[in-house]
C-alpha cells in the first residue's frame, strides 16, 4: 500500500511538470504575439492629415479658401504624399496620392480609410459641405 502511494506521487510530479511546461509555453506565445504585433497608428495619421487639410482649406475667420485647387493643393498645404497616401476632397475635385489605395477601403486591414465632413462658409456666406477621404496604406 505504501509502495502504491509512492508510485502515484511519481506520476503526479510528471503531470505537474507537464502543466508547468504548458503554462510556460502558453504565456510565452501570448507575449510574443502581443509584442510582435506592431503599433498601428495609421488611423491617427489619417486623422492628423484631415486636420491639416481643414486648416489649409479654411481661412482664419472660418471661411473657405477658394484659391486652392488640385494643381496647387500640395504646394499650398505643404504636404508631401508618396505612394502610401491618398486624398480625395469634394467638391473641389482634389485627388492626390496613390489612387489605387481607395479600392482597398473596407476590405481588410491593408489600408486605413477615414472620412470626415466639414462645414465652411463661402464668400457669400453660404454653407459648403466638404467631404474629405484620407487613406493611409502603410504597413501597420
Amino acid at each position: 500500500m505504501n509502495n502504491w502511494n509512492k508510485r502515484g506521487e511519481k506520476y503526479l510530479s510528471v503531470y505537474w511538470f507537464a502543466i508547468l511546461v504548458i503554462v510556460a509555453v502558453g504565456i510565452s506565445a501570448m507575449v510574443i504575439i502581443f509584442y510582435g504585433k506592431p503599433y498601428d497608428v495609421r488611423e491617427i495619421e489619417a486623422g492628423i492629415l484631415i486636420n491639416k487639410i481643414v486648416d489649409c482649406l479654411s481661412n482664419a475667420d472660418g471661411t473657405l479658401n477658394a484659391e486652392i485647387n488640385n494643381e496647387n493643393f500640395l504646394n499650398k498645404c505643404h504636404l508631401v504624399l508618396g505612394d502610401e497616401y491618398y486624398l480625395e476632397i469634394d467638391p473641389f475635385g482634389i485627388k492626390q496620392g496613390n489612387f489605387n489605395l481607395k479600392d482597398y477601403c473596407g476590405k481588410g486591414e491593408s489600408v486605413v480609410c477615414v472620412k470626415r465632413n466639414v462645414y465652411l462658409l463661402d464668400e457669400e456666406n453660404r454653407e459648403v459641405i466638404i467631404k474629405i477621404l484620407s487613406v493611409v496604406g502603410k504597413d501597420a
Binding site: 492629415l49 491639416k52 505643404h78 504636404l79 508631401v80 508618396g82 502610401e84 497616401y85 502603410k138
Partner: peptide, 8 residues
C-alpha cells in the same frame, strides 16, 4: 523607419 507627410 516611418515616413511623414508634413513638408517641413
Amino acid at each position: 523607419s516611418y515616413s511623414f507627410f508634413n513638408n517641413v
